[in-house]
Design a protein around this nucleic acid. Structure first.
Lengths: 196, 196
DNA sequence: GTCTATACTCCGATAGAC
DNA sequence: GTCTATCGGAGTATAGAC
């Protein structure tokens, strides 16, 4: 998240057009869905023409892919870090903590991914997301434990998503809700870990 | 779920066209997403023309709405039943059990709703789904409990979804996985209930 | 680095014949 | 109940001027 997202008065600054396209596109994609957002709409918001978009990105798909790649590096780093750690409960807790933080700071993108799964699945990045989710579950999971404990690990991740996406619309302080979701998720993996 | 879903050989039977449109449409919507599925495609699968669809349904949106309304009655009945029950732990367990069953027998529709949230939000049924979800959470929830316990109730529902959608692709027996998810979900609301 | 102008495809939807 | 034919519009994308 960098700039110009909320204002409807795009600066005439030059040279940062690519970044501005990414910002506006993500905002609209998250708001209305990927397919329902047209390039014309993105161009209008930036006060440029459709053709200008094609100077910076080869296709519509390229825009979302570039946003995705720029914004999900924290998760890749998290996975890389975790794979070099001992598979202790504390490591797992740290994974959830950092995942929750990454979601909070990239909220728009995560909302987009959550609400446009059908689209994601057909985009080239869909496979990447799926693999990463599996890897994360792998890192949280107890090997050979009962099925219910494996479900707990998946559920822990989904709880973080649920906390971000669903509860946000109901309760008061988003940060408080995030912490509550993190608590529940941590609780879930703790039980799964101890049942080992 | 009625007929002709899996076969690629549509019967030339007449009089059940409306039903066949619903079946094929849901299948394609769930597979490819709502926006990416065109009426032409649906018509081709049924070996009729686009115009024929318009005899049975006023718009594309009407198709998915009709499927939705025909298939989600079990949930409405569940809510109605639960609202007439005392808010005991056993009632809550029964809610989860029946919700899980409803999801299993309407898997395609639930997959569609899960993966096309952005679309759902702009469809007239989106609001209905959201309200129903809130009502269900309300029924599971402990009044005035700590935030974490409220998250547990939401998380319980999401766990059932996670079990259906995510784990299905990994593990062996779907029914076994469903039971495991139900177990974890029940566990979550039990903790929330007892903390009351 | 951005714009004008344009091409082409496909979509959802309608009118009217059979 | 299904067809042919067609509409208006939007979408992605390109060529070429400035």
């Amino acid at each position: 998240m960098s700039s110009s997202s909320s204002g409807s008065a795009p600066q005439a600054k030059r040279g940062n057009t690519r970044q501005r396209i990414q910002d506006v596109a993500l905002e609209l994609f998250a708001e209305q869905g990927y397919e329902k957002t047209s390039l014309r709409e993105i161009a209008e918001r930036l006060d440029v023409t459709k053709a200008a978009l094609y100077y910076h990105f080869k296709t519509k798909e390229d825009i979302i892919i570039s946003v995705f790649e720029d914004s999900t590096r924290p998760i890749d780093e998290l996975i890389e870090w975790a794979q070099g750690q001992p598979r202790t409960l504390e490591t797992k807790r740290e994974v959830l903590r950092r995942y929750s933080e990454a979601m909070a700071s990239g909220a728009q993108l995560y909302r987009f991914m959550q609400e446009n799964q059908a689209t994601m699945r057909e985009l080239s990045i869909g496979e990447t997301v799926k693999k990463r989710l599996f890897t994360l579950v792998e890192l949280l999971r107890t090997e050979e434990g009962p099925l219910a404990d494996q479900v707990r690990c998946v559920s822990a991740l989904f709880t973080l998503h649920a906390g971000m996406m669903f509860l946000q619309h109901v309760e008061g302080d988003p940060e408080e809700t995030r912490q509550a979701a993190l608590e529940v998720a941590t609780d879930l993996i703790t039980r799964a870990h101890q049942a080992q």
